[in-house]
């Protein structure tokens, strides 16, 4: 049948009410956002929360610029980014990545808070959060804390969120200098979770790479940065081809998981290819705008 086991449904009208409910239920409660990951798990009875706290009506749906920060409310739906002018102008790589998320109906309902909290190993938004050094704003009745994306993901479907907490927003530092980047992913079919994906963001410093940010999924149980490659890229002329040997060496040292969808060897090779291509594309785009 694939139907959920019984639970109690709560629909708070304010954030405080929601936090109070989550505090009360602890382990047995869960926020319900778009439901695009949680409800399948419940129907399969892989998740059995006793209490669902519906957080859809808490007004967490703004995309706002706050000085050097772009603040995205936890309930912003994926499809918004595709047409949002701020995202389009400031973070085109973000937009490029979002195109790979699922299908139109899923994108219409799935939320960033849900995606980060669900923490699928190869989901796009976690990868983007890691790429951009986003801060995840987590709140409970005891107050608010910010967790850096790099420290947020603990494993497949595991995060730094404690029972009673929920994500209220995700803060992305807005690239301050001219920047360019690329997001490339390979999945079996369009809309599938990636076998591997790579995102690159380069700050342009004259005709050279200023700072570099390189993140990938498929290399571990969650998205990771490749600081060694980032260091290797800094200072390189934009016209120079991607450092293939360096990339090959760094990719070669990765220990991606192997499973029925893809072997570890394949994922490693794929990461090498995607790193090379994403770097090259990012450089080419950087040349166009500098």
């Amino acid at each position: 049948m694939l139907r959920p086991s019984a639970f109690e449904y709560h629909k708070p009208e304010t954030l405080d009410q929601a936090l109070a409910l989550l505090a009360e239920f602890g382990d047995e409660g869960r926020p319900l956002a778009g439901g695009q990951s949680l409800v399948p798990m419940m129907n399969l009875r892989l998740a059995r929360p006793q209490h669902l706290v519906d957080i859809n009506d808490l007004g967490l749906e703004a995309i706002e610029r706050d000085g050097p920060i772009l603040r995205i409310g936890a309930l912003v739906r994926h499809e918004r980014y595709l047409t949002d002018p701020l995202i389009g102008a400031l973070m085109p790589v973000f937009q490029e990545g979002v195109h790979y998320i699922g299908h139109p109906t899923i994108r219409r309902h799935g939320s960033i808070g849900g995606s980060l909290a669900h923490a699928d190993p190869t989901a796009e938004l976690p990868l983007l959060a890691v790429l951009y050094d986003a801060q995840i704003v987590v709140r409970s009745v005891n107050g608010e804390r910010r967790v850096a994306a790099a420290a947020f993901f603990h494993g497949a479907y595991m995060t730094a969120i404690d029972p009673g907490e929920m994500i209220v927003a995700v803060e992305f530092p807005i690239p301050q200098t001219a920047a360019a980047g690329a997001f490339i992913e390979v999945g079996e079919r369009r809309g599938d979770f990636a076998l591997a994906a790579v995102a690159v963001q380069l700050a342009i410093d004259g005709g050279r790479i200023g700072t570099a940010s390189v993140a990938c999924s498929g290399a571990a149980q969650h998205a990771i940065r490749l600081p060694e490659l980032e260091r290797a890229l800094i200072g390189k002329p934009l016209g120079e081809p991607a450092p293939e040997n360096e990339i090959a060496r760094i990719a070669g040292a990765l220990k991606p998981p192997g499973d029925h969808a893809a072997s570890a060897d394949y994922r490693r090779a794929l990461l090498k290819t995607l790193l090379t291509r994403a770097t090259a594309t990012a450089c080419a785009r950087a040349r166009e705008i500098s």
Partner: peptide, 27 residues
Amino acid sequence: CAHGACGCCTVHVDGAPKLSCLTFAGQ
């Protein structure tokens, strides 16, 4: 499928397509 992956159950909620297998009536 009852797990969000086939689209058979799509209906409109307030005018927009939604998977009715991933939606509780109570919502």
